[in-house]
Amino acid sequence: MSTTDIAQSGDTSHDGGHGDEGHEHPSDAKYIQIAAILGVLTALEVSTYFVNIGPALIPTLMVMMGVKFFLVAAWFMHLRFDSSLFTKFFVGGLVLATGVYMIALTAFEFWTKG
């Protein structure tokens, strides 16, 4: 591979804009803010153990879990800022696991009998 080729490919990938986009991680303050939200959510989750909220319990828990999950993946694992390929791998694994195992749980009549 000649040097000119490298220069060319270098141009496309070392372009200032992309480099900044990739490396500009959030500030520590932002991380602490996210962690605070996570903490509050956890506290809310735990509070359902002490306060009876009736049939809304499981949907509420699932939503809060989903938000926590999303926050850690998006911010702490940098999926928001990183290559979308990573997100695809992770979401791919998650969706496949959820789909396959939910079918399996259905076969065991988990949803109706618990």
């Binding site: 791998f89 992770f90 694994g93 998650l94 496949l96 696991a97 959820t98 396959v100 195992y101």
Partner: peptide, 10 residues
């Protein structure tokens, strides 16, 4: 990590 999803899922 994508692979690990299936492990913990199981």
């Amino acid at each position: 990590l994508g692979s690990e999803c299936l492990l913990f899922g199981g």
